[in-house]
Amino acid sequence: MEQKDDIKEVGSLLLDIGAALMSSGASSGRIRITINRIAEAFGYNADLLITHRALMISVSDEDQNEFFSSLKRTSPHGVNFTLVSGISKMSWKIVDQKWTVSQIRKDLERMKALPHYPRMVVLLLVSLAGASFCRLFGGGLTEMLVTFVATFAGLFIRQEALKKEFNPYLCVFFGSLVASLISGLSVKYQIGQTPEHAFATSVLFLIPGVPLINSFTDLMDGNIMNGIVRGINGLMIAFAIALGLLASIMIYHI
């Protein structure tokens, strides 16, 4: 009979994969499916307790002779769909090609180390997205330019604040404040035809799209607790955006 991989190694590997998925923005259902798929490839049963900030796993072999249980905190690292996509692809390869634990570990580390988009590219394209939003809501060229600059500055400040490890909601607030202060200038001095459009759309780069959509996905899947937690997280972010806007409105009296 083929020697099974050590249950401890498999268990802690599964936990690492689950934690990576959670930090990079996968829904609870996806985490559970991926973990179970990999565990089955090794001939183990895995049960997961998924919460927003911690992951608990219990792995057992089919005869229930061996158990492994462990708990791991997951850190919110920001959305990273390349990692989600890579792990999903890897999970199928594990099933099809009978990968070993060390092989998977190596691939996981490789994927975690993959470079993100260069900062300038992110800043420019997200600002362009902001300008596109402005156009969609009916802004003209001037308003689009204002939104572009405001988004650029807001995102830059948010990235800097995240680097300095401020509270994440505070980072959103800073971003929202800076963006709306810049676009608010155009409202104050009536630059362009409809400066309100620039003001309203300059903070849209902060919208918590992933938390809110994952929240509903989890609720529909029956992961009610996770759905509520993610939803509240999304609402807190929305609240931070609103506070930034509010502060600008008060400062400029607009």
Binding site: V79, F81, T82, Y117, V126, A129, R135, F205
Partner: peptide, 19 residues
């Protein structure tokens, strides 16, 4: 408008670090 919808989606794709 389609162009702008696409660009806005693209910007967020970059922000979420898609492949």
């Amino acid at each position: 408008k389609g162009i702008w919808f696409g660009l806005a989606a693209l910007g967020f794709g970059i922000l979420f670090n898609v492949p």
